[in-house]
Design a protein around this nucleic acid. Structure first.
Lengths: 120, 120
DNA sequence: CCCTTGACCTGAAGTTACTCCATGTCGGTA
DNA sequence: TACCGACATGGAGTAACTTCAGGTCAAGGG
């Protein structure tokens, strides 16, 4: 698979994918004889996961750490599991922020409607 | 109210509050005779709202735009309302991302457990 | 066979949104 | 009066991209 296809499938921009590889956030990507990247299914799956982790606020520093644990193979699975569980907890926090913001917006919008209503 | 207290109450760091004022993301803050900022309740409320908007991904460019509409007073309420409603829609998107990430994590964690189970 | 096109490459500079730092002032206390 | 803590400023540093300038390669059209 070439970079454009991977980009479409994982939601990361082409530039971001190159940036992630360069920064060691994803395992080595093979190259064709033309020097261009050829992504495996494994590469794609990894980028899909990274994309989702990133969207939900995991810093690249942690993604790099996670990637290093991946390179270490199955012996590092408990460590990887711990990282994902930590991120799960982080998702709960984000959920709370969303709920809080929703409530605040509802309150503000109600106040706007009140003011607009008075003008009639 | 002084900056340290406002920071504690709105969750933004002291540096961020100063940065927001400098960038025009919040209305003018009064100064005491000592040259130090004295925040009103209105200032605090505004920063609490900005903090929540920021946490949920509103870019500072939009926060600035919103702030300019605030300065225009009640005539700009329909425009402000529209912006907050747009952000509400954005929150729905984030919600989806969270749900998607949760599902992906659950799947990965189940796979890890499977691998760890096989080793026994 | 040559030329153009399109998808890709690299290294470097630019952008966003902070965050940290050095240095300086002011009001109050020992 | 000397110092302390909370605040001030301007500027440099950082994270995570994003954009840009300039170059390569394979394929197709004239």
């Amino acid at each position: 698979m070439r970079i454009a296809e991977v980009s479409a499938k994982c939601g990361l921009s082409i530039d971001t994918i190159r940036y992630y590889e360069k920064s060691g956030l994803c395992p080595e990507v093979q190259r064709g004889t033309d020097g261009k990247r050829r992504f495996s299914i494994e590469n794609l799956d990894w980028l899909i996961l990274l994309s989702s982790l990133r969207e939900t606020g995991m810093p690249t520093r942690k993604m790099k750490q996670f990637s290093e644990l991946y390179r270490q193979g199955n012996t590092a699975i408990p460590a990887r599991k711990a990282m994902l569980e930590e991120h799960e907890a982080h998702l709960e926090l984000q959920e709370l922020r969303l709920v809080k913001c929703k409530a605040l917006l509802a309150f503000k919008l109600a106040k706007y409607d009140e003011i607009l209503g008075e003008k009639l």
